[in-house]
Amino acid sequence: MRRRPHDAPRSSAPRSSAPRPPDAPDRSRRRRRALSLSTREAIWAYVFLLLPLAFYAFLRIYPAIQSFDLSLHRWHVDPAQRTFLGLAYYRELIGDPKLHRALTNTLLYAAIVVPSQLVLGLGIAVLLQSVRRLRPLFRAIYFSPYVTPAAAVAWVWGWMYSVNFGVFNTALIAWSDFVTRLGLAWLSIPPQAFLSDPKQALPSVAAVVVWQQLGFQVVIFLAGLQGVPRMFYDAAAIDGANAFQRFRFVTLPLLNPVMVFSVIISTIATLQLFDQVVNINFTDQGGPLNATLTIALYMYQLAFSRFQIGYASAVTVLLFVLILTVTLIQLRLLQRRVEY
């Protein structure tokens, strides 16, 4: 019976003591050396990744697969009584008008929030970078919305948007009075319904999301800007580049990794938008008339208010596929631009 080498009992292979041909040590060292160059790094990589990957497999991926599995079953509190339905929930998804609305809304939120955050976040970071006095105070102020709890945010913005009491409408009325007195009545703007108007509700909520997440973006960009060596600016300045050119050709390319992060993270977060939507209209979540409903909120309502956890899981799978697709496209488009 043939044994494969590594099955050989130790005692029967006293290789080290066996006489070697003269050229043998050299070749084996070279082989080990060659091995180490390409493989040593890989082995270390796997060693470093061992624990984290076990974490992801056990606490993130396995539960996610379980959750996906639930989308194929009718939900029951007792696992033994969950009946297999196949793709029935997915067929239901296709014809669910509420889901269609949630999908459209979610994409709309992303289309508003992600570019706004990128532009405003970067703009504010650059502004903050260009001042010296009061900079710490400004930073803390611009960061403050990010640390404010969702309930308090919803309360304050709910009042500001209020049709009958809110500051925005008070300002609009004052403005209209002012321009009317000047004989420019055509410039006046009537009070708006904001959150109560099915057409304005989504942009109104999106504004709150941008406002709250801006601090996050600003910190990311500030940290990124810190990493841009001053040397490059000086070189560009010597070459006669103006401020805009320096920004365009020095800052932006060097910020690319940070911008990739910013765009992808804010896209992923916005496609899962939930907290602000729930809180700002707590008694008609996603309303009025589903105008602010998101996929994540719909999923949550299905699972936890209506106990349709199987169907909610199918919605989760859909959301996952959507986010994965968008992220892959973004990674393709954004990462290719720059070589490291």
């Binding site: 790094e41 991926i61 996610a64 992808i264 899962q272 939930f274 899981s313 994965l324 892959l328």
Partner: peptide, 28 residues
């Protein structure tokens, strides 16, 4: 570090961000 499957590992890790944690609480 260079190793086979690096991009795949990154993508797998990134993909865990795409499942809302709300749906993981029951298995957890």
């Amino acid at each position: 570090l260079r190793f086979p499957g690096r991009d795949l590992v990154f993508l797998i890790i990134l993909s865990t961000l795409m499942v809302p944690t709300e749906m993981l609480v029951i298995p957890w």
